[in-house]
């Protein structure tokens, strides 16, 4: 798997501007916009706190949120994996002595580790400059949860890919999933703003582990117990999805007719 991770890292370094846009430019623009928006919103609303948190707390949250959300997102590899099944080019992987799941997991994690190293330097710098509520001692815990979430989101991708054996074109599932994650991860707004019942529901789903929980923990909205609970929830969902994925992969291979071969 290490070899696949190295392969992904080298491939992405080949197109450096493309990677620079993904790791730095694009999230930096989004962060600047979100920060400007929350700053003005507090002024326009004429309130000092929103959902129990101050403006500084929101600014610290959005400093990190976009970057965490960008690292945890998986649209590029998902489309590539779906293309493999749709076009039939998966055949070249099936005949090799390697597993499809590991082949792409290695590449995905390699790419995400590089993204993490380069991307997180920016919000760290911003947080140091602006002060706010960021606690850097909590960063390892937040990154640990993010790593678990990456395995979860990849497993979810794998489950969607297995559907392509039967339905061929399933790109729309990816879009549906991404919209849901967008809302449920806390990228758009901190989940504290949701109603108590919705917040309770989100705590049993793994999506908050992409952004809200790690960023909330890092910026003192949440405590270690919340982080630990999110770890268990995400691991449990990964296990369940892994079993589903394995089941559908086996069934899918049985009906797969090798389109394009």
């Amino acid at each position: 798997m290490w070899v696949y991770a190295k392969l992904a890292a080298e491939t992405h370094l080949e197109y450096r501007f493309n990677s620079f846009v993904d790791w730095c430019l694009s999230p930096l623009i989004s962060t600047a916009v979100e920060m400007a928006m929350w700053w003005t919103m507090f002024q326009a609303m004429g309130v000092s706190t929103l959902g129990g948190f101050s403006r500084e707390s929101y600014l610290s949250y959005v400093t990190w949120a976009v970057f965490f959300a960008r690292i945890s997102a998986n649209w590029m590899y998902e489309f590539r994996m779906l293309q493999e099944v749709e076009s039939g080019s998966i055949n070249s992987i099936l005949v090799r002595p390697l597993r499809f799941y590991e082949y792409y997991l290695g590449q995905f994690l390699g790419y995400k580790l590089m993204t993490m190293v380069f991307s997180l330097l920016l919000p760290a710098g911003l947080a140091l400059l602006m002060g706010g509520t960021t606690d850097f001692w909590r960063l390892p815990g937040a990154i640990f949860l993010l790593m678990i979430y990456l395995v979860f989101t990849y497993t979810l991708t794998f489950c969607i890919v297995t559907l392509a054996f039967r339905l061929t074109k399933v790109g729309s599932f990816t879009v549906t999933k991404n919209f849901f994650v967008w809302l449920a991860s806390g990228e758009l707004f901190p989940l504290d703003l949701l109603s108590p019942s919705m917040k309770m529901l989100s705590s049993y789903l793994p999506f908050a582990s992409a952004c809200y929980i790690p960023v909330g923990y890092l910026t003192h909205r949440l405590e270690f117990a919340d982080l630990l609970k999110a770890c268990w929830v995400t691991v449990a969902w990964t296990g369940v999805l892994g079993l589903f994925g394995l089941f559908f992969w086996r069934r899918g291979l049985r009906i797969y007719s090798g389109t394009g071969a």
């Binding site: 080949e14 501007f17 493309n18 990677s19 993904d22 430019l25 694009s26 989004s30 590029m76």
Partner: peptide, 14 residues
């Protein structure tokens, strides 16, 4: 640019 998948992301950020 050659490969520019992420330029689409740049557009979405804007």
């Amino acid at each position: 640019m050659g490969r520019a998948e992420n330029l689409a992301q740049l557009w979405y950020s804007l």
